[in-house]
Amino acid sequence: MSSELQVSVWRGAGEGRFVAYRVPRAVNQTVLDVVTYIQRKLDPSLAYRYACRVGMCGTCAMTVNGVARWTCRTHVSKVVRDDALEIAPLSNLPVIRDLATDMRGFFDKWAKAHGQFRGTKSRDDFAKIRPDDRQRTEIDAGIECIGCAVCYASCDVVTWRPDFLGPAALNRAWTLVNDARDVEQRERLRAVAGDAGCHACHTQASCTERCPKHLEPTRAIAGLKLMTAREAVRGRL
Protein backbone atom coordinates (compact mmCIF):
# COMPACT_ATOMS: atom_id res chain seq x y z
CA MET A 1 0.00 0.00 0.00
CA SER A 2 1.52 3.30 -1.05
CA SER A 3 1.49 6.27 1.29
CA GLU A 4 -0.62 8.56 -0.89
CA LEU A 5 -3.95 8.48 -2.75
CA GLN A 6 -4.61 10.34 -6.01
CA VAL A 7 -8.16 11.52 -5.47
CA SER A 8 -10.27 13.00 -8.25
CA VAL A 9 -13.18 15.01 -6.85
CA TRP A 10 -16.07 16.56 -8.78
CA ARG A 11 -16.11 20.31 -8.24
CA GLY A 12 -18.59 22.84 -9.53
CA ALA A 13 -22.19 23.98 -9.57
CA GLY A 14 -23.82 24.48 -12.99
CA GLU A 15 -20.82 23.13 -14.85
CA GLY A 16 -18.16 21.05 -13.25
CA ARG A 17 -14.99 19.12 -13.65
CA PHE A 18 -12.80 16.72 -11.71
CA VAL A 19 -10.05 18.26 -9.60
CA ALA A 20 -7.09 16.22 -8.34
CA TYR A 21 -5.97 16.05 -4.71
CA ARG A 22 -3.24 14.07 -2.95
CA VAL A 23 -4.40 12.52 0.30
CA PRO A 24 -2.23 10.52 2.72
CA ARG A 25 -3.38 6.95 3.17
CA ALA A 26 -4.28 5.60 6.57
CA VAL A 27 -5.21 2.22 7.96
CA ASN A 28 -8.98 1.55 8.00
CA GLN A 29 -9.54 4.77 6.08
CA THR A 30 -13.00 5.29 4.62
CA VAL A 31 -13.88 7.39 1.59
CA LEU A 32 -15.64 9.81 3.96
CA ASP A 33 -12.33 10.19 5.82
CA VAL A 34 -10.73 11.11 2.49
CA VAL A 35 -13.36 13.73 1.61
CA THR A 36 -13.21 15.19 5.13
CA TYR A 37 -9.42 15.40 4.92
CA ILE A 38 -9.65 17.30 1.63
CA GLN A 39 -12.14 19.81 3.01
CA ARG A 40 -10.31 20.35 6.31
CA LYS A 41 -6.70 20.31 5.17
CA LEU A 42 -6.59 21.04 1.43
CA ASP A 43 -9.64 22.98 0.22
CA PRO A 44 -12.22 24.36 2.67
CA SER A 45 -14.50 25.36 -0.20
CA LEU A 46 -15.43 21.72 -0.90
CA ALA A 47 -19.18 21.16 -0.35
CA TYR A 48 -20.28 17.73 0.90
CA ARG A 49 -22.71 16.18 3.36
CA TYR A 50 -22.47 13.68 6.17
CA ALA A 51 -24.08 13.25 9.57
CA CYS A 52 -23.81 10.08 11.62
CA ARG A 53 -20.61 8.73 9.92
CA VAL A 54 -21.49 5.24 11.21
CA GLY A 55 -23.77 3.89 8.48
CA MET A 56 -27.19 4.78 9.88
CA CYS A 57 -28.37 7.97 8.19
CA GLY A 58 -27.40 7.64 4.51
CA THR A 59 -26.42 11.32 4.22
CA CYS A 60 -22.89 10.64 2.98
CA ALA A 61 -23.97 8.78 -0.17
CA MET A 62 -21.79 9.66 -3.17
CA THR A 63 -20.55 8.08 -6.38
CA VAL A 64 -17.22 6.36 -5.73
CA ASN A 65 -15.35 5.04 -8.79
CA GLY A 66 -18.63 5.18 -10.69
CA VAL A 67 -20.76 3.31 -8.14
CA ALA A 68 -23.17 4.86 -5.61
CA ARG A 69 -22.12 4.07 -2.05
CA TRP A 70 -22.26 5.26 1.56
CA THR A 71 -18.81 6.81 1.86
CA CYS A 72 -18.65 6.30 5.65
CA ARG A 73 -19.04 2.54 5.11
CA THR A 74 -16.75 2.27 2.11
CA HIS A 75 -13.22 1.38 3.05
CA VAL A 76 -10.66 2.89 0.69
CA SER A 77 -8.85 -0.45 0.58
CA LYS A 78 -11.96 -2.07 -0.91
CA VAL A 79 -12.44 0.32 -3.81
CA VAL A 80 -9.08 1.92 -4.55
CA ARG A 81 -7.54 1.16 -7.96
CA ASP A 82 -3.88 1.93 -8.59
CA ASP A 83 -3.90 4.26 -5.58
CA ALA A 84 -6.63 6.34 -7.27
CA LEU A 85 -10.16 7.25 -6.28
CA GLU A 86 -12.84 9.11 -8.18
CA ILE A 87 -15.49 10.82 -6.03
CA ALA A 88 -18.55 12.46 -7.54
CA PRO A 89 -22.04 13.42 -6.34
CA LEU A 90 -24.92 10.93 -6.71
CA SER A 91 -26.26 10.59 -10.26
CA ASN A 92 -29.83 11.40 -11.31
CA LEU A 93 -30.11 14.29 -8.87
CA PRO A 94 -29.45 17.98 -9.57
CA VAL A 95 -26.03 19.00 -8.26
CA ILE A 96 -26.17 21.94 -5.86
CA ARG A 97 -22.41 22.20 -5.65
CA ASP A 98 -19.50 19.76 -5.64
CA LEU A 99 -20.68 16.59 -3.84
CA ALA A 100 -24.00 17.89 -2.54
CA THR A 101 -27.17 17.10 -4.50
CA ASP A 102 -30.71 18.45 -4.36
CA MET A 103 -32.79 15.68 -2.85
CA ARG A 104 -36.14 17.43 -3.13
CA GLY A 105 -37.18 15.63 -6.31
CA PHE A 106 -36.39 12.29 -4.70
CA PHE A 107 -38.63 13.01 -1.71
CA ASP A 108 -41.33 14.62 -3.86
CA LYS A 109 -41.62 11.33 -5.74
CA TRP A 110 -41.91 9.52 -2.41
CA ALA A 111 -44.96 11.67 -1.67
CA LYS A 112 -46.32 11.21 -5.21
CA ALA A 113 -46.22 7.45 -4.67
CA HIS A 114 -48.40 7.93 -1.57
CA GLY A 115 -45.46 6.86 0.55
CA GLN A 116 -47.09 7.92 3.80
CA PHE A 117 -49.27 5.81 6.04
CA ARG A 118 -52.89 6.88 6.39
CA GLY A 119 -54.95 5.16 9.07
CA THR A 120 -58.27 5.76 10.79
CA LYS A 121 -57.98 3.68 13.92
CA SER A 122 -56.93 4.86 17.36
CA ARG A 123 -55.27 3.16 20.31
CA ASP A 124 -58.70 2.23 21.60
CA ASP A 125 -59.50 0.30 18.43
CA PHE A 126 -56.30 -1.00 16.90
CA ALA A 127 -55.67 -3.59 14.20
CA LYS A 128 -54.33 -6.90 15.45
CA ILE A 129 -51.69 -8.09 12.99
CA ARG A 130 -49.73 -11.27 13.65
CA PRO A 131 -45.98 -10.79 13.19
CA ASP A 132 -45.81 -13.83 10.91
CA ASP A 133 -48.67 -12.55 8.82
CA ARG A 134 -47.79 -12.94 5.12
CA GLN A 135 -48.33 -9.27 4.34
CA ARG A 136 -46.45 -8.20 7.46
CA THR A 137 -43.50 -10.33 6.32
CA GLU A 138 -43.52 -8.50 2.98
CA ILE A 139 -43.53 -5.16 4.79
CA ASP A 140 -40.69 -6.18 7.10
CA ALA A 141 -38.54 -7.09 4.09
CA GLY A 142 -38.65 -3.51 2.84
CA ILE A 143 -39.39 -1.26 5.80
CA GLU A 144 -35.82 -0.38 6.79
CA CYS A 145 -35.31 2.14 4.00
CA ILE A 146 -33.78 5.39 5.24
CA GLY A 147 -34.14 7.34 2.00
CA CYS A 148 -30.44 7.64 1.11
CA ALA A 149 -31.13 7.67 -2.67
CA VAL A 150 -28.37 5.20 -3.57
CA CYS A 151 -30.93 3.07 -5.41
CA TYR A 152 -32.40 6.09 -7.15
CA ALA A 153 -28.95 7.21 -8.24
CA SER A 154 -28.14 3.73 -9.54
CA CYS A 155 -31.23 3.31 -11.70
CA ASP A 156 -31.04 3.81 -15.48
CA VAL A 157 -34.82 4.04 -15.80
CA VAL A 158 -34.70 7.09 -13.52
CA THR A 159 -32.15 8.56 -15.96
CA TRP A 160 -34.22 7.68 -19.03
CA ARG A 161 -37.64 8.68 -17.65
CA PRO A 162 -37.65 11.91 -15.63
CA ASP A 163 -41.10 11.18 -14.19
CA PHE A 164 -40.31 7.61 -13.07
CA LEU A 165 -41.01 7.45 -9.34
CA GLY A 166 -37.95 5.32 -8.71
CA PRO A 167 -37.09 2.30 -6.58
CA ALA A 168 -37.21 3.89 -3.11
CA ALA A 169 -40.63 5.49 -3.53
CA LEU A 170 -42.06 2.31 -5.05
CA ASN A 171 -40.49 0.14 -2.35
CA ARG A 172 -42.10 2.32 0.32
CA ALA A 173 -45.44 2.21 -1.51
CA TRP A 174 -45.25 -1.60 -1.51
CA THR A 175 -44.78 -1.69 2.26
CA LEU A 176 -47.90 0.43 2.61
CA VAL A 177 -49.90 -1.50 0.02
CA ASN A 178 -49.39 -4.53 2.23
CA ASP A 179 -50.45 -2.66 5.36
CA ALA A 180 -53.93 -3.85 6.27
CA ARG A 181 -54.47 -0.76 8.42
CA ASP A 182 -53.94 1.78 5.61
CA VAL A 183 -57.05 3.32 4.09
CA GLU A 184 -55.60 4.95 0.94
CA GLN A 185 -54.92 1.78 -1.03
CA ARG A 186 -56.88 2.65 -4.18
CA GLU A 187 -55.22 6.06 -4.54
CA ARG A 188 -51.83 4.51 -3.88
CA LEU A 189 -52.23 1.79 -6.49
CA ARG A 190 -53.32 4.41 -9.01
CA ALA A 191 -50.28 6.51 -8.18
CA VAL A 192 -47.77 3.70 -8.67
CA ALA A 193 -49.19 2.12 -11.83
CA GLY A 194 -48.11 2.86 -15.38
CA ASP A 195 -44.96 4.16 -17.00
CA ALA A 196 -44.25 6.77 -14.34
CA GLY A 197 -44.72 3.98 -11.84
CA CYS A 198 -43.82 0.36 -11.41
CA HIS A 199 -44.47 -0.73 -15.01
CA ALA A 200 -41.46 1.20 -16.29
CA CYS A 201 -39.09 -1.00 -14.30
CA HIS A 202 -37.04 -3.37 -16.47
CA THR A 203 -35.63 -5.46 -13.61
CA GLN A 204 -32.12 -4.17 -14.23
CA ALA A 205 -31.91 -4.57 -10.44
CA SER A 206 -29.15 -2.04 -9.89
CA CYS A 207 -31.25 -0.84 -6.95
CA THR A 208 -31.17 -4.26 -5.29
CA GLU A 209 -27.46 -4.69 -6.09
CA ARG A 210 -26.47 -1.35 -4.55
CA CYS A 211 -28.83 -0.90 -1.58
CA PRO A 212 -26.56 -0.51 1.45
CA LYS A 213 -29.26 -2.01 3.67
CA HIS A 214 -29.67 -5.02 1.35
CA LEU A 215 -33.29 -4.22 0.64
CA GLU A 216 -34.87 -5.46 -2.58
CA PRO A 217 -36.81 -2.74 -4.39
CA THR A 218 -36.98 -5.09 -7.40
CA ARG A 219 -39.09 -7.43 -5.27
CA ALA A 220 -41.42 -4.63 -4.20
CA ILE A 221 -41.80 -3.36 -7.76
CA ALA A 222 -42.52 -6.86 -9.07
CA GLY A 223 -45.27 -7.16 -6.47
CA LEU A 224 -46.73 -3.79 -7.44
CA LYS A 225 -46.63 -4.61 -11.17
CA LEU A 226 -48.83 -7.65 -10.81
CA MET A 227 -51.19 -6.13 -8.27
CA THR A 228 -51.82 -2.93 -10.21
CA ALA A 229 -52.10 -4.72 -13.56
CA ARG A 230 -54.72 -7.08 -12.15
CA GLU A 231 -56.68 -4.13 -10.74
CA ALA A 232 -56.43 -2.31 -14.07
CA VAL A 233 -57.62 -5.32 -16.04
CA ARG A 234 -60.57 -5.66 -13.66
CA GLY A 235 -61.37 -1.97 -14.22
CA ARG A 236 -60.78 -1.15 -10.58
CA LEU A 237 -57.80 1.15 -10.92
Binding site: T63, A68, A88, N92, V95, S154, T159, Q204, A205
Partner: peptide, 12 residues
Amino acid sequence: MMRRNDFRARGH
Protein backbone atom coordinates in the same frame (compact mmCIF):
# COMPACT_ATOMS: atom_id res chain seq x y z
CA MET B 1 -27.06 19.80 -13.98
CA MET B 2 -27.17 16.10 -13.20
CA ARG B 3 -24.49 13.48 -13.38
CA ARG B 4 -25.27 10.23 -15.17
CA ASN B 5 -23.99 6.75 -14.60
CA ASP B 6 -21.50 5.05 -16.89
CA PHE B 7 -20.54 1.41 -17.48
CA ARG B 8 -19.09 1.08 -13.96
CA ALA B 9 -22.53 1.35 -12.37
CA ARG B 10 -23.82 -1.31 -14.77
CA GLY B 11 -21.27 -4.00 -14.03
CA HIS B 12 -23.52 -6.71 -12.63
